[in-house]
Amino acid sequence: METNPHPILKPGSSFMLAHPAHFLAQGFGSGLSPIMPGTAGTLFAWLSFAVLNLRWPTLFTPVVWSAIIVIGYFIGVWACAVTGKNLGVADHGSMVWDEIIAFWLVLVFITPAPLITQFWAFIAFRFFDMVKPPPIGYFDQRFKGGFGVMFDDIVAAFFALLAFALYRTW
């Protein structure tokens, strides 16, 4: 897949709406936040998870969420590859579908949980996603394209869940 030779540094709504892959990769617009788009995408994930679970609790079960996450991961590989190519930046900051899928994964494993627990899960996930301690940073550097964009956030979600599991055992 050939990359745009002229990178788009600040994509706007017209870019996002130009292709379904852009709309998805940019988190339905949450990735267009001028400050901390990854955090905005993660907040969108949290809000959408809460709203869908409250509105349709019998539909949005852990099994259904798991299917959404798996399917969303593979669609996200495609959407992030297309969007990165069109932006001219493989892992552009406005692409937040990776944060959305990864944080939904965290929420599936920790809920039902009080709001404060969900808040600490948010903090833990953002820490691992932003700081990228080993091996997250290794995967971020090693794997490129849509797969690379999506995979390092899944590893960050795993580390956030591992931190919660270790905390609960003490």
Rank of each mutant, 00 (worst) to 15 (best):
N4S: 13
N4I: 10
P5V: 09
H6A: 10
H6S: 12
I8R: 06
K10Q: 04
K10L: 10
S13V: 15
H19K: 02
A21W: 04
A21I: 13
H22C: 05
F23Y: 07
L24P: 03
Q26W: 05
Q26G: 04
S33M: 10
S33R: 04
M36S: 06
M36K: 12
A40W: 01
A40V: 00
F44R: 01
W46C: 07
A50N: 15
L52A: 10
N53R: 06
R55D: 14
W56L: 14
W56Q: 15
P57Q: 13
P57Y: 06
L59K: 14
F60E: 11
T61M: 09
P62I: 10
P62E: 09
A67I: 13
V70W: 12
G72K: 00
V82W: 07
V82M: 04
K85P: 04
K85V: 13
L87N: 03
L87H: 07
G88F: 04
V89N: 01
A90M: 05
H92R: 08
S94F: 01
S94T: 10
M95W: 00
D98T: 06
I101F: 04
W104M: 03
L107F: 03
L107P: 02
T111M: 11
T111F: 15
P114M: 11
I116S: 13
F119A: 15
A121V: 07
F122N: 05
I123D: 09
F128D: 04
D129C: 12
D129M: 06
M130R: 15
P134L: 08
P135N: 14
P135K: 09
Y138S: 14
F139Q: 08
D140C: 06
R142F: 14
K144L: 15
G148A: 07
V149Y: 01
V149W: 00
M150N: 01
F151Q: 05
F151N: 00
D152R: 09
D153L: 13
D153N: 07
I154W: 11
V155I: 05
A156G: 09
A157G: 11
L162S: 00
A163W: 12
A163H: 12
F164Q: 01
Y167R: 04
R168S: 15
